[in-house]
Design a protein around this nucleic acid. Sequence first.
DNA 1: CGTCTGAGTTACGTCAACGTAAATTCCCAT
DNA 2: ATGGGAATTTACGTTGACGTAACTCAGACG
Lengths: 134, 134
Amino acid sequence: MTDDHIMTIREMCDAFDVTPRTLRFYEAKELLFPIREGQKRLFTKRDRARLKLILRGKRFGFSLEEIRQLLDLYHMGDQQQTQLARTYEIAQQRLSDMEAQRDELNQAIDELKEQMRWGEKMLASMDQNKRAAE
Amino acid sequence: MTDDHIMTIREMCDAFDVTPRTLRFYEAKELLFPIREGQKRLFTKRDRARLKLILRGKRFGFSLEEIRQLLDLYHMGDQQQTQLARTYEIAQQRLSDMEAQRDELNQAIDELKEQMRWGEKMLASMDQNKRAAE
DNA sequence: CGTCTGAGTTACGTCAACGTAAATTCCCAT
DNA sequence: ATGGGAATTTACGTTGACGTAACTCAGACG
């Protein structure tokens, strides 16, 4: 299977469109744990899964630290009752944050549109004045 | 009139809920131009108008640099045809950016909700297992 | 054997918008 | 004159997520 394929840092970068720096940075932040064969890093299926979650987390607006905590909870032991519930809590919190953010954004958009209607009228009247002056 | 009232930095801070540091910072960035009487800064109606626009701009998600450019265009000379049109352009660009951002956010929210339904099922089934094990 | 490539480490740089601390100066009231 | 309370300047600190040198090391190739 290509499933347990072990990848070099370059393969990872190409596969996920990130830089080597990013992968090393994530390792330093304990988000990834590639195998160290000699000097080189080797990334397994596990790392790919984690990276996939990391990138998704970033799309969701989680910070790397939050993502690390979520990954820790996720890949931890077997009494995941409280853990998973906690994960769920964090995600729920994040969700309401995001919805609030969206609402703010919508409001800002509305205000800006209002401003721009103003600008339109301005432009139109100035255009008239301009033609009247010719 | 209270309109051409000249305000100290403290009055400004109280009126707009910002810190002195912020006002000095804006001056350093050439967003504000308070009168310098001796050592002190005195803020006029013009400064209040600009600050109002600055804070509004921030709510819209403009960077200070963008706001500075907009203010420069806005308060500039008298052939504002092109200038105002440019301002309008920039605002329009910013608007579409914001809408794109909102759409991304909405998508992320949807995805996250999907994940969380997963989490719910997980929790529910684990809860069943738990009770079955008692 | 030389060198080229790819990977590695270390560590400082970046960007935004201020916060914060230290030292100084200013005017005013006691 | 002497505090006391503003305001000032200068300049380093903060946060997050990497970018970007600079230098070393290990195989592979011709």
